[in-house]
Amino acid sequence: MSSVTSGHSVPAATSPETRNSVRPPGSAKNPVRRSVRNLVRRSVRRPWRLAAEVSALLIAAVVAFPLYWMVLSAFKPAGEIESTRPRPWTLSPTLDSFRRVFEQQEFGRYFLNSLVVAVSVVVASALVAFLAATAVTRFRFRFRTTLLIMFLIAQMVPIEALTIPLFFQMRDLGQLNTLGALILPHIAFSLPFAIWMLRGFVKAVPEALEEAAYIDGASRTRFLWQILFPLVLPGLVATSVFSFISAWNDFLFAKSFIISDTSQSTLPMALLVFYKPDDPDWGGVMAGSTVMTIPVLIFFVLVQRRLVSGLGGAVKD
């Protein structure tokens, strides 16, 4: 589980040896291992590596192409999008589509709504899952294994299938037409996976550390929030990616629970206003899509490294 604490967050600038070595991100963690890996690399014959690198670049281009086309179409003037000879560039980029999106709809407001939903879900589920993961990994108590299996099973529950009962439940709680109707179920649905994933991170923190903390007079709460929490943070970040995506992307609940109050609408619903199957406003759809994708993209790039190590750590254990 060394990956958990491989601490990309800690610049370790104090150590001269790290300062001098320029390492590609995510390379092997110690010199010995690195040289071994280089040895392996060197032994791969050159033409093969070249072919591999060329294909990696090509695949990257193919994978990125839909996103490129999205952004491109968002900036194209209307005449160029609805042209039967689409060109992969534009000589006259314009903000018209964005303007239309923001004027015709309260897109800013929907953006904010989406953000409120996603951030509430991320924060709440991270905290709750952290506590629960600590409980199931650092304590032995009755029904512990049963609970774990239940979390695992809960993770499999298809949330879409629960739209019907949740609709009535949200109605009875008076949450329909409010963002709460989106936040509450998403917290519940992201918890089991988050707990399951965090388990590995919490487990990785040595128990001796805990003992030492107590011997030093730290309270359990203090250990929890000031020692354990920072150590588990990379795992929390990796976990929050999933809850963020599920909340930010939510389409079905927004469609079903936000019945009449369009001021509580979120981005996916607002986007589809421009997408009418008979006569889609492609420029508007793409501009809206761009606006909707960028925050997630930023979030991903920010947590990218932690995500890699986090996922590796979580599933390895």
């Binding site: 992307n249 986007l271 997630v296």
Partner: peptide
């Protein structure tokens, strides 16, 4: 590129 695809909302 993969992160970009991953980050793209389903809608």
């Amino acid at each position: 590129a993969a992160l970009g695809a991953w980050a793209t909302p389903a809608v």
